[in-house]
Design a protein around this nucleic acid. Structure first.
Lengths: 339, 339
DNA sequence: CTGAAAGCGCTTACAG
DNA sequence: CTGAAAGCGCTTACAG
């Protein structure tokens, strides 16, 4: 590959001048013709600055890590797309890693940071009790943005507007006439889980609807945990006429177990889930969801990571575009209003 | 962060010695006590070599790009996991990119390569007519491994054993008594599409079963294309008693459209799809699949990219572990043998 | 066997 | 306003 001295030689100027012209140094006053010669020479040689050299010189890698608990998750693909687009438009590369690289005994992130290979980390904490030593990550002033999990604390955070999502789901059910509404929620030792449950309780109370503890579970967001939640709720006799499921993965488990238990959806129980995915049309019944702005979450996280003062802590909520209800066939009128 | 000269000073040796001890240079004969002092000093200072400096010196970035057409795809998550594990065990980082970064007008990959930011590329071509200028990617001896698409040509390739997968699917159907079997296949201008169709025809003919052109479609692997395929097959009057769907995404579309058209699965038609996903239990009916070794595909691609002579072209098929049939509820006896 | 020195390709204070 | 020079932190041929 051509290097900067090749461009300088072809243009008949110094390497310094080439660097400054190409980087758009505003303090540079060079004649228009010189500038053009430099640009033409760079183009002719298809010059691209060597990343390692620039990185060594500037101490910036222009690379960030995206660390997620589960590449399989319903939310990952859209999140990653949003982050990737924003990163690409800024000339950043995104390195992919699963959260297990962060658990005790793995020095993956420590190495990546120590090697100065990444400038920052976008981190989605796993649901449930954390096995990640967050403190030890805050080494050497590393920029960290925690997404879709924490919403306060010593790290910058970006979260979805969970309250708006939950409200959209509940209001859809209320509009259909439901008054007995349960929640299949996330772990209460994770911030999203607490946030979504608190939002749910607030909306239900505000509407003057009954809150029944046996209609509320907090097993978590996986399909298996959704199954467990449905089993527990069904075992309690008086089951609600509708469920809000705080995550689509769990909702698939809820659907499967409802079917196994002979509960017809939506005839016996209506189900609405947070997060829309492309295959929601192929579940049975096709599941009604609330589409959350995951792509924007990813993009915002990249922006927060790179913009502004690295030492300032910000806590953002992505509230635009608003959650959108996607009505499919898992929600209907409540049982008692049928005949 | 500590640098090599800090370690050298603490250990009382030269930077050269530190570099050689830490990199395990075999030609180095240093006293055991010196070696220990160096290692102890590096540990004490938590020394990690600066990646940019090493990269600049060695002209190796120890980073590879994983370029896939669709992060949303049913196959991506497992593929990425396998690649990531293999990469992490080799101290490589994986940069994520969607194939649209490669289409005309985008110079993303050219930049990444030109900047010497990546050592190689694992590339899954999009299904359908290629909009990617493969030739122009072969710049500066870049290592490229094309996966799950091409199986010959000027680039090294790694593919799944599509023939074994298709055979597993067909034999499951034959064992249930099906003789009228169709294929919902991929585009015939993509290599996987051709490979899977050819395998299907070979197995069907070998079994002495009839081949009917109207039972075979080649719309592609997306959910929407699966819908179109089911519509076309259903419109043809004599529909087969079973379908092999060459990709799970398409199978979800097939299921949805079968339901819309009033075709009961598996009572009226059995469906078996290539690729298993975690949410297959939540489709309706839960879909019978053939699990392909996608994780191994990813790992093998990383190995092929990094090992051996960069200029040699290899064409590999991942045939271990073998495709595994996962029987769920979308397959049953054929219609006529029911009563 | 070990260390001093060169050099990878940039950017940027500094001198002219 | 422009260029020469230093230096980012490594690795490795070379000299001793």
């Amino acid at each position: 590959m051509a290097k900067i001295s090749d461009v300088a030689a072809l243009a008949g100027v110094s390497a310094s001048a080439v660097s400054r012209v190409l980087s758009g140094d505003p303090s540079l006053r060079v004649s228009a013709s010189t500038r053009e010669r430099v640009i033409a020479a760079a183009k002719e040689l298809a010059y691209v600055p060597n990343h390692a050299a620039r990185s060594l010189r500037t101490s910036r890698s222009r690379t960030i890590a995206l660390v997620v608990p589960d590449v399989n998750s319903a939310v990952f693909a859209e999140l990653a797309s949003g982050a990737e687009d924003e990163a690409a438009s800024r000339g950043l590369a995104i390195v992919l890693a699963r959260a297990e690289r962060l658990t005790d005994g793995s020095d993956w992130l420590r190495r990546m940071l120590g090697e100065a290979r990444i400038d920052g980390v976008i981190l989605q904490l796993p649901d449930g009790p954390s096995t990640i030593d967050l403190e030890s990550m805050a080494v050497g002033g590393t920029r960290i943005v925690v997404i879709n999990s924490l919403d306060s604390g010593q790290f910058s955070t970006v979260v979805l507007d969970d309250a708006a999502g939950i409200r959209t789901a509940v209001e859809h059910l209320r509009a259909a006439g439901h008054t007995e509404i349960g929640l299949v929620g996330g772990h209460q030792d994770s911030a999203t889980g607490r946030r979504r449950e608190a939002s749910f309780l607030a909306v239900i109370r505000e509407a003057g609807l009954p809150v029944r503890n046996q209609w509320i579970t907090d097993f978590g967001y996986s399909g298996a945990e959704g199954r467990a939640a449905m089993e527990v709720i069904a075992a309690n006799g008086a089951i609600p006429t509708a469920l809000v499921v705080a995550n689509l993965n769990a909702a698939l488990g809820v659907l499967a177990t409802a079917s196994t238990l002979g509960l017809r959806v939506p005839t016996d129980i209506s189900i609405v889930a947070l997060h829309d995915v492309w295959y929601a049309d192929a579940t049975w019944p096709p599941i009604t969801t609330v589409r959350m702005p995951l792509s924007q979450l990813g993009a915002t996280a990249v922006a927060r990571l790179m913009d502004g003062d690295p030492t300032s802590i910000t806590h953002d909520t992505v509230s635009s575009p608003e959650p959108v209800l996607v009505v499919r066939q898992s929600t209907d009128l409540p049982r008692q209003s049928r005949k």
